[in-house]
Design a protein around this nucleic acid. Structure first.
Lengths: 162, 162
DNA sequence: TATATCCTGGATATTTAATATCCTGGATAT
DNA sequence: ATATCCAGGATATTAAATATCCAGGATATA
């Protein structure tokens, strides 16, 4: 079971975009350059974030992407849902309806206990992700990120923003 | 992000095996027949369960599989770990170490905040799965499974156990 | 002891999903 | 007018999940 790598890319991009001055943007090319990842593929993920109203995009020269909501209003769950989809990891294939002791399909209105247990685990996971906002992640940068890297990032931003 | 379908098959098989008289077994073929799933592939999953000491296997005629622990000692997490592997869904690719503002690799001893947040969610998920035992699932069969299906299952078992 | 049953593990094929690139068209700032 | 940038479709590549088959070893039974 593996989550799309695009989720990691997306959160890092959102974090960088959150440090932009108001109304400034970064292009997909710049975002890819900053993170050392392929621009063409990153673009696909950014489009997914736009579709889910996490980012907004500006076409044309000096265009690019910026956050479409406050950092407090963007959770990790929002990102996961946008990039990885909303379908749960456990997908019940209703094997109880197969085999020699199965009944007609009308007899299975409620989910089976096994599917319910996995749905609980999924809810716990989503709950945890829902409780972590982009704002939370940014707040811990000063204590968690090496000051030298913070400085280099700021310098890079200053350079590309002209 | 999708969990292996083998997890669902496995839990259903464990549930059926739990209803066996002591020291009786079911072969992979019978388990597959009961659930209407391919025997050859199910075998691979059963082998994984044996490797993790959830099942034990008996070779030879009248051989097959049986639980190797009490139902109270088998959790959904045990099954997921055996079938789907122990690696978390979110795999940090350390993109912070790439790009123009990265430092040398010695400067990244602690996990980044993003990876930590996903690790929390993973822990919540695992915690939920760990709290659900095979015993719990079996306990709710009387209320959750249609009595007619329970009857058919019992009849099938009686037949194949001779 | 011959035989039939059953698990084990390796080899391999098939299918599906993730990853990745490219290109055309439309928007827009300069 | 031109250069930059996003949107979305088409397509290629890679990796993983799904699935089958077979040879080898164990064992109950006749």
């Amino acid at each position: 079971m593996k989550m799309s790598g695009g989720v990691e890319w997306s959160v890092h991009c959102l974090s960088l975009l959150a440090s932009l001055p108001p109304d400034r943007t970064l292009s997909a090319k710049r975002l890819a350059e900053f993170h050392g990842i392929p621009a063409a593929y990153l673009t696909k993920h950014l489009q997914a974030l736009v579709r889910d109203n996490i980012l907004e995009s500006i076409p044309g020269p000096r265009g690019g992407f910026r956050l479409s909501r406050a950092t407090e209003q963007i959770t990790l769950l929002d990102v996961v849902d946008a990039i990885d989809g909303k379908r749960p990891a456990f997908r019940c294939s209703e094997i109880r309806q197969r085999g020699p002791s199965a009944l007609g399909s009308k007899c299975y209105r409620r989910p089976c206990g096994i599917a319910a247990a996995f749905a609980n685990a999924d809810a716990a996971w989503r709950g945890s992700l829902m409780n972590c906002t982009l704002s939370d992640l940014i707040a811990e940068i000063p204590e968690k990120v090496d000051p030298r890297q913070q400085k280099k990032s700021a310098a890079w931003l200053k350079k590309v923003l002209g």
